[in-house]
C-alpha cells in the first residue's frame, strides 16, 4: 500500500477521539468505530497514530482491524453497494443478483470501480428478510430485487449523482 501523508488536522481529529475514550487500550474497538465513522476507512497510517495514542503496538491495532469485517483499510466507493447474503436472501436468489452486479460493474466483491463511484460488498442479514433479496446502496434499502433490475439501480445512481453534481456546481 502506498504511504499516504495524513493532514495535520486529521491527526488532530484521531487524537481527539482517542482522548475522548481516555486513551485506554480497552477502548480500542470503540475508537476504531468512531475514527472510521469520521474518515471512512482505517489505512495503516491512521492505525499508527491510534497505536501511539493508546500506548499499544501497531501490530495489535492491525490485528483487531483485520479481525472484524466491519473495519476496512480500503476506502469505499462514493455509493457503496452491499448485497445481503443472509440465508433468507440467498434462498430467494441473492447470488444471481450479486453476479449481475459483478457483471455490470466489472468488479469483484470488495473492490471499487475505477471511477471510485461504486464499491461492491456482501453483508449478512440486514433484518429486512421479508423483502428478500435485499440490496443496500449507502443507507437506502432496495427490496425484492430481481437480476433484471440491477441495470436500473446502477443507472439511477450514475445519473442521479450527475444531476446532483450539476445542482451543486
Amino acid at each position: 500500500m502506498p504511504k499516504i501523508k495524513l493532514a495535520e488536522n486529521t491527526v488532530q481529529q484521531i487524537k481527539e477521539v482517542c482522548a475522548e475514550f481516555g486513551n485506554k487500550e480497552g477502548e480500542l474497538i470503540n475508537v476504531l468505530h468512531k475514527v472510521q465513522n469520521k474518515l471512512g476507512y482505517l489505512p495503516a497510517e491512521v492505525q499508527e497514530v491510534i497505536a501511539r495514542e493508546l500506548k499499544t503496538s501497531v501490530a495489535k491495532v492491525y490485528g483487531v482491524v483485520t479481525f472484524y469485517s466491519f473495519f476496512t483499510m480500503i476506502p469505499k466507493g462514493e455509493f457503496p453497494i452491499s448485497i445481503c447474503m443472509g440465508t433468507a436472501c440467498y434462498v430467494r436468489g441473492a447470488e444471481q443478483v450479486l453476479s449481475e452486479f459483478k457483471r455490470q460493474l466489472k468488479v469483484e466483491v470488495g473492490e471499487s470501480t475505477d471511477d471510485g463511484k461504486f464499491s461492491l460488498n456482501c453483508l449478512r442479514c440486514v433484518g429486512a428478510c421479508g423483502l428478500a433479496p435485499v440490496v443496500m446502496v449507502g443507507e437506502k434499502v432496495f427490496g425484492r430485487v430481481a437480476p433484471t433490475q440491477v441495470v436500473n439501480i446502477i443507472k439511477e445512481y450514475r445519473e442521479g449523482c450527475a444531476s446532483e453534481n450539476a445542482k451543486s456546481a
Binding site: 474497538i29 468505530h33 479481525f67 469485517s69 466491519f70
Partner: peptide, 8 residues
C-alpha cells in the same frame, strides 16, 4: 453499550 464489529 458495547458495539460489535461484524464477527459471527
Amino acid at each position: 453499550i458495547r458495539l460489535g464489529a461484524g464477527a459471527f
